[in-house]
Amino acid sequence: MKRKIGALDILLPALCLALALGVAFVFGPCGPKEDGGYMTCRWAGRAVLGLGIAMTALALIRLLLPRRARLGADAGLIACAGAAIAMPGTLIHLCMMESMRCRAVTRPAVTVLCAVIAAAALLDAALQIRRERQS
């Protein structure tokens, strides 16, 4: 039977890709210091980039999985989104000033995007469970 592609099937990989590309090119952390050295926020950005790539891969693999296995992929996406939210600021220190790019732009953008990914994955999981019960 041909599998129907829903809105969430497109939205989830797109959001994960937006996280990876965004942290690399749009809302990345602070640049190098005057002496050329990097601040710790750079590594927070790198960690989120890594998670973003892994999440994109997971969201794409999810499309190939049978319905029941998709629940596991959704759970994985939610866990990764939580880890990505904690990465800048909680797990890896950011710069000193709230007005600096890593605190003013990177952290809120990562938080908002990951919260939306987690919410979408949660919704998808709920829909899977409902379909499972109906069939």
């Binding site: 602070c30 210091k33 005057e34 601040m39 710790t40 926020c41 710069c95 000193m96 000033m97 600096m100």
Partner: peptide, 9 residues
């Protein structure tokens, strides 16, 4: 400049 980063205080 703070020791941690390029922040000016």
């Amino acid at each position: 400049t703070a020791s941690c980063c390029s922040a000016s205080v």
